[in-house]
Design a binder for these strands. Structure first.
Length: 552
RNA sequence: GGCCUUGUGGUCAAGCGGUUAAGACGGCGCCCUCUCACGGCGCAAUCCCGGGUUCGAUUCCCGGCAAGGUCACCA
């Protein structure tokens, strides 16, 4: 068979020589050891935790080594295209401090452009043409229906499904048959003529998993679809070679197609990049666990974290602790270090799927947020409120000075110990709400309401706004004593039967009256922030609404 | 079903022939001048199973089992 002629018939016209591509996209002039990594999403615009997970690994490895991280868009499937998706991806990642050096919509060095695969059609076809000329690729005229039938037949016979060996009908079509089909105008795809044998096992070094064995590929995979656009596999081999990628960190789901890629690189005569296949994020689903799915699991979406107001650095720290097992220890020792100083290593990446743990994330969030100054916290909350908060919540920021005092109190700024009350912006806004709105409801009291009423009346009679914390608490003790409560905790503990309760119960009454809640930071400070008139007002209100206005 | 990967407390995990089998999150208990938060102390809880190899296996080998991934003209 004259492959030369066939190639010309299949992909007519002049294509740039393969050598010219090598020239146009030369090896990168980077210092030794510098890694070139990439992110290659399809333009659905949906970027999720799994993407972020891989993105952080790629970014860290590239930049730790003095290399390059670039963004390539795999838009070979039109069905997946969504407008504005690329910008969405870039912005979402920027939020987590992941920046590209070059790539689609990035600017930077354009030597290796175009970054959209649709813009590289000529390149793929040129290589496909060469493969046809060499007899390593051939046209296939099978329809999708035929392939479907084949699959059913194979399944029924319990044989391996796919287009290979004796099942590859078009692999050995005669020259005559090929041209007859072509003349009839039948659509065709280009398939690789695989030379592999699945009996052969290949040892392979994976940067994350270590030594693994893979089976040789024997599938005559499609490399060019009937519209002349390459499949992922073919585009991957060509792009990562021409863009001079040194290390491909990608999801574990690609491990199964590694044999195809190995054969493709070999057929094309390219040196392979190194690979690292990282585990996926899992979720507990009843008895079993499964890969986080974008349809079922809202927490997979990055949007979920933005809406809830998770602090970006916290999410990043959490990802890092999952990504590198020694990160947590390092971070404990260097709590204030720049995250980029951590010596990230692909070999420290986990081999097995990890269950996503919201509790852990919350804990990290509390710690991260507690490191902020009141000003930083206010800025973070305001940013969140402007985008996701209610009108009322935005109103909290009207009095900036008050907001700063509130945050300082809730974060323990100025005290001996930092408080850690906040996990997310939405939770924090709810937490500080009583500073800005009167209680709409009261948490349950341990003390009967008639007694509460007396305590509140006493409080109203004795409250002096000018009292310092000590004097204030002394008067709370007096109120306690006057109403049959133990003024000293020790006394109460020594003789619980002898009292109606302790000063703690009295404090609870006052706390719930002024905030509606049983648990808050220091009450005296809260009252200082609220102001005398407001404190009295709330006590009166509580007397009426909480205690039914009971007198005596 | 074939192939590949993975199997240490509830979760993330150190460990890589001899350890009281780290640490973190979560849970529980106690302490900490009024609650909460913070902090401190403590408790419970783990080497998937079965065979080998070895004086000795969580660690090495084999075989099971389980979980996950993948088998498209999607990436």
């Amino acid at each position: 068979m004259n492959y030369q002629l066939l190639a010309e018939r299949l992909l007519p016209g002049e294509y740039p020589s393969l050598a010219s591509f090598e020239e146009k996209y030369p090896p990168r002039a980077l210092p030794k050891g510098a890694e070139v990594t990439r992110l290659a999403p399809s333009p659905t615009g949906f970027i999720h935790l799994g993407n972020l997970f891989a993105a952080i690994a790629n970014e860290r490895i590239a930049h730790r080594s003095g290399g390059i991280l670039y963004l390539r868009i795999e838009d070979t499937d039109l069905k997946r295209k969504v407008d504005g998706a690329v910008e969405a991806v870039i912005n979402a990642l920027k939020y987590f401090d992941i920046r590209f050096d070059e790539g689609a919509e990035i600017g930077g060095d354009e030597t290796y452009a175009p970054w959209y695969q649709r813009g590289r059609a000529e390149i793929y076809r040129a290589y496909a043409k060469r493969l046809i000329e060499e007899g390593r690729a051939y046209p296939c005229f099978c329809t999708e229906e035929e392939l479907e039938l084949l699959r059913e037949e194979q399944t029924k016979k319990k044989e391996i499904t796919g287009y290979y060996g004796k099942y590859a009908k078009c692999r050995d079509l005669s020259e005559e048959e090929i041209y007859r089909n072509l003349d009839a105008g039948k659509p065709f795809v280009i398939r690789l003529r695989s030379m592999g044998n699945p009996e052969n096992k290949i040892k392979f070094h994976d940067e994350i998993k270590g030594e693994i064995t893979v089976t040789e590929n024997d599938q005559d995979v499609v490399i060019l679809k009937s519209d002349g656009i390459p499949t992922y596999h073919f585009a991957h081999a060509i792009d990562d070679h021409l863009m001079r990628t040194t290390l491909v960190i990608r999801g574990e789901e690609w491990l199964a197609s590694l044999p195809i890629h190995i054969e493709l690189f070999e057929a094309l005569g390219f040196e392979r990049p190194r690979y690292g296949h990282n585990c996926s994020l899992m979720k507990q689903d009843g008895e079993t666990r499964r890969k986080l799915s974008k349809r079922k699991d809202p927490e997979l979406s990055l949007e979920f974290y933005r809406k809830d107001g998770y602090f970006p650095r916290a999410v990043k720290v959490y990802m890092l602790t999952l990504l590198n097992s020694n990160f947590e220890e390092w971070y404990l020792k260097n709590p204030d270090a720049d995250l980029n100083e951590f010596p990230f290593k692909a070999s420290k990446m986990s081999k097995s799927g990890t269950l996503f743990d919201l509790d852990k994330l919350s804990d990290i969030s509390k710690n991260e947020l507690s490191k902020l100054s009141a000003e930083q916290m206010a800025a973070f909350l305001r940013g969140w409120a402007e985008e996701f908060g209610t009108e009322a919540q935005r109103g909290f920021f009207a009095d900036e000075e008050k907001m700063l005092r509130v945050l300082s109190l809730c974060m323990g700024i100025g005290g001996k110990k930092r408080r850690k009350d906040f996990t997310t912006a939405s939770q924090a806004m709810e937490f500080i709400r009583y500073f800005f709105e009167r209680p709409a409801a009261y948490e349950e009291l341990r003390t009967e309401s008639a007694v509460c009423a007396r305590v509140l009346k006493d409080f109203l009679a004795r409250y002096r706004y000018g009292d310092d914390a000590q004097a204030w608490f002394a008067s709370v003790k007096e109120i306690a004593a006057a109403n049959g409560f133990a003024a000293e905790m020790k006394d109460y503990k020594a003789n619980p039967q002898g009292y109606r309760g302790s000063v703690a119960d009295v404090a609870e009454i006052l706390r719930i009256a002024t905030t509606g809640k049983a648990n808050t930071p220091d009450l005296w400070t809260i009252q200082q922030i609220l102001g005398e008139a407001e404190v009295r007002e709330r006590a009166e209100l509580a007397l009426r609404d909480l205690c039914g206005g009971e007198d005596k």
